[in-house]
């Protein structure tokens, strides 16, 4: 096996393409791709598409519980945006032999590639706006990186609209998180509770630390421009000053000595899924963390099954 991997790494066509994209060259055509480029690109878009779609069952409970008609509309509009983003990704994936209908409706929900941050159905509107404020900000940082750096031009171009719309979700989240922080003692408590829950989920959105990562094809083929740690740093540099400005407590701060933002806890940490509570003092191993991510939360399968079955029933169609 080891020899096989070495062979691919030393394949002159693979190396030539890596050098070409390193100079800023963008591909327009599937025919220009090498096998390994194609694999890492398709994998990236595949996960991005799954992540767009799982926002629907995650956000939808908040449509029912949000306080005013405007809030309901804004949540529904965000869901519509996310599905639109998925549609564009499916359109690209079809050029690589994917069948959108079976991809969406025939796949076993357990096979979906989702991230923990988007797996917990929102219990109320405050959870939605905190999730938009911290989570959509994290998502936005990854999609902006892809738009700016992805060497497959059609994907990079398609993300212009995606990022344009994500800015609305983030702005919506920041505005209302601040509003509920100042509205009442009860709403402030709920905001803090939700930030305590979402912060480690969002910090983990960017994946493992760079020094532990073994697969680096996304960077060597310039599918992405920034590494996990660079993107996490970018997220912290936005989210920590925002939170401090509002008064929300977050488990991270700017470290003067290192000249960068650092987490106040040692990731990965243990999550009590039932209580939605992190034990900031209980560190788990990366092996355990990867197992948790791979399995998904208890909500993952029911949520995706709900998208596939459409709760309204077949009469809708």
């Amino acid at each position: 096996m080891a020899t096989a991997i070495k062979d691919i790494q030393e394949d002159p066509r693979e190396l030539a393409l890596q050098e070409k994209v390193a100079t800023g060259y963008q591909l327009e055509d599937v025919e220009e791709m090498t096998d390994r480029y194609r694999d890492v690109l398709v994998n990236t878009i595949h996960i991005a598409a799954d992540l767009e779609v799982v926002t629907l069952p995650t956000y939808s409970p908040a449509i029912k519980t949000s306080p005013t008609l405007e809030d309901k509309i804004s949540i529904a509009a965000a869901c519509q945006d996310e599905l639109g983003h998925a549609q564009m990704m499916y359109r690209i994936l079809e050029d690589f032999g994917y069948d959108t209908h079976s991809f969406l409706f025939d796949r076993d929900p357990e096979e979906w590639r989702t991230f923990q941050m988007l797996e917990f159905p929102h219990e109320d509107y405050i959870e939605s706006v905190v999730s938009m404020c911290y989570g959509d900000r994290a998502g936005y940082i990854t999609t902006v990186d892809l738009e700016e750096n992805c060497s497959y031009a059609p994907f990079a171009r398609s993300l212009r609209k995606v990022n344009y719309e994500e800015t609305f979700h983030v702005a919506h989240g920041e505005r209302w998180t601040k509003f509920f922080w100042n509205q009442s003692e009860g709403s402030r408590k709920r905001v803090q509770e939700m930030v305590d829950f979402y912060f480690p989920l969002c910090a983990a959105w960017f994946g493992m630390p760079d020094n532990l990562k073994t697969r680096t094809d996304q960077l060597s083929y310039r599918i992405r421009g920034a590494s996990n740690d660079e993107m996490r740093q970018k997220w912290l540099s936005r989210i920590v000053p925002y939170s401090e400005g509002v008064g929300i407590k977050v488990p991270a701060h700017f470290d003067e000595e290192q000249g960068k933002f650092v987490l106040d806890y040692e990731a990965p940490i243990y999550l009590d899924e039932e209580k939605r509570k992190w034990d900031y003092d209980r560190q788990i191993t990366w092996k355990e963390q990867l197992k948790v991510w791979k399995k998904g939360s208890q909500h993952k399968v029911p949520s995706i099954a709900r998208v596939m079955s459409e709760e309204w029933g077949k009469d809708l169609w």
Partner: peptide
């Protein structure tokens, strides 16, 4: 392990896609 669930949406390929081959615009 396959997940079993009820009420799965049935796709009418002809109605929703017009045929087996997708058409792009």
């Amino acid at each position: 392990m396959a997940t079993k669930f009820k009420g799965k949406k049935k796709i009418d390929q002809k109605r929703e896609r017009g045929g087996k081959e997708p058409k792009y615009y």
